[in-house]
Amino acid sequence: MRTARFVSTVALSMCVAATVAGCADGAGRNDAGESRPVPRSARAQDDLLKSAESALVRRCLTERKVTPPPTPSGSANGTGAGAAEDRGSAPRREFPYGIDDPVWAAEHGFGGAARNAGPARGAGAGDAPSAPRAQQTRQARQAPQGQMTGKRAAEQQRRLADALFGTGRRELSTRTATGYVVRANSDGCLAAAQRTLYGDQARWFRASVAVNNLQAVTHRRVTRDTAYRAVLARWSRCIAPVEKAEDPGELRSAWQRRAHDLEPREATALQQRYAVAEARCVRSTDLARTGAALEKRRAADVRAEYAGQIADHRRMRERGLRIAVRHGL
């Protein structure tokens, strides 16, 4: 699946985190018979499940005589290459309904928000479903190659991707509430690891796609709410003297077009000017505050609507956590 925007799969949405936190409290025993507690926090549970899935995948790849990709240094605790890259750029802050901090905007411009283009016209940013294959294919391409070049390297990458994700027609398919179709194979090492942890891979696939996209569903409903659209229209009128834009996402697109032929210093100055203008208009119109208030109500509606999938996802997570603890994964 190829899409322009992806919902992050690094963590569950805030709706899901509230649902699953602390739900798998308890202890298990590893293969050596030693007692090991199941972590209580949602983040620690996520880390354990990722670690367990990775261990099972690597074991499967080894059995299939395929060289596993290297494990990114510090990936479990956020100290790897990605975290280092983030430390070299603007501090990570979320502005789902437009930047509302003029001081931050003056220093960092759009910052991370430039990549996560805020509320886009007619839909929320991040409407695309999570795409684990796309992310893990990038990891697969980091496999050690030594002096391999050309066809040999390409063949090893293909073998690794096939072993990880499976081959042939993708048997699993589900449609997200925002309209995207997500597909996956059931014969790769990733599928085998998920069956070991969660029992039913097809069921886990459908539940996890639904749950991991709840934030996108909520955000989309907020940005289509008539109350939000009314405030957004006031924001558009406010920003017009700087740039004609219907929403913050369009403002960033306008900056990218204008910055294309500018020197880096000029492009940065223009970005900061646009970002400060965005923030001042967000403040003066209460756009971000309106979005946040609507999100609370919409999130509750979404959780109620998807209660069955959330509960199913929670039960399978709990099973996976128990197995991870029991087998020391």
Rank of each mutant, 00 (worst) to 15 (best):
N212C: 11
T71R: 07
R170V: 06
E155P: 00
W235P: 09
P96Y: 01
R252N: 04
N185Q: 06
T268N: 09
A161C: 14
N116F: 13
S35Q: 13
L49I: 12
L321K: 05
P264Y: 03
G82A: 14
Q157H: 12
R152L: 12
R93D: 08
D247A: 15
L270C: 12
T167L: 08
G328D: 02
L270M: 15
L61K: 08
G118A: 15
T62W: 11
Y180K: 00
A76F: 02
Y228N: 14
L48C: 10
A125H: 13
R314I: 01
V16F: 07
R319G: 06
A277W: 05
Q156I: 07
D187E: 04
K151W: 07
S130C: 07
R40Q: 05
D86I: 01
T79K: 04
G82T: 03
Y97I: 00
A76C: 01
A191P: 09
L214P: 13
R257H: 06
A240Q: 10
Q256P: 08
R138E: 15
E263T: 11
H108L: 03
Q156S: 13
G166A: 04
H108V: 05
G308P: 00
R234F: 05
A163F: 07
R133Y: 04
R206P: 04
T137M: 08
P132T: 05
V103Q: 03
M148D: 13
G112C: 13
G249A: 09
